[in-house]
């Protein structure tokens, strides 16, 4: 079977999203919906573009896309309301 090869290694946009980086980290963020006021600070700082404030019914809070989250902890560190806690993934627990 012949593969398709783009002229001059030109690439289509946003193909990185095929790569799920969610298994990179040891920790993962957990958002406390009660404490979160939807200020979007975490969203603005997340290097992996995987935490986003969403409106769910009446509520508005940050939702993590664990497919991509690398567990860096930046979101937790910048949240003005301490609404995010980093937790160790089960597989790293001894």
């Amino acid at each position: 079977m012949k593969i398709k090869l783009n002229l001059g290694a030109i690439s289509e946009p946003l193909q990185s999203e095929k790569l799920k980086t969610g298994d990179w980290g040891t920790h993962y963020p957990v958002v406390d919906k009660e404490k979160c006021n939807g200020c979007k600070t975490c969203e603005q700082y997340c290097p992996d573009l995987c935490i986003e404030v969403k409106e769910v019914g009446e509520e508005k809070y940050a939702v993590v896309d664990y497919n991509y989250c690398k567990g860096c902890g930046i979101c937790a560190s910048v949240c003005p309301f301490e609404a995010i806690k980093m937790e160790l993934k089960d597989i790293f627990k001894v």
């Binding site: 946009p13 946003l14 193909q15 990185s16 999203e17 095929k18 790569l19 799920k20 980086t21 990179w24 980290g25 700082y45 997340c46 290097p47 992996d48 573009l49 995987c50 896309d65 497919n67 991509y68 690398k70 567990g71 860096c72 902890g73 930046i74």
Partner: peptide
């Protein structure tokens, strides 16, 4: 305009 799934180290400032 910049996708998830890129290869930066966790916590890298560049994608921000």
């Amino acid at each position: 305009y910049f996708g998830s799934g890129h290869g930066a180290c966790p916590g890298c400032g560049l994608p921000i």
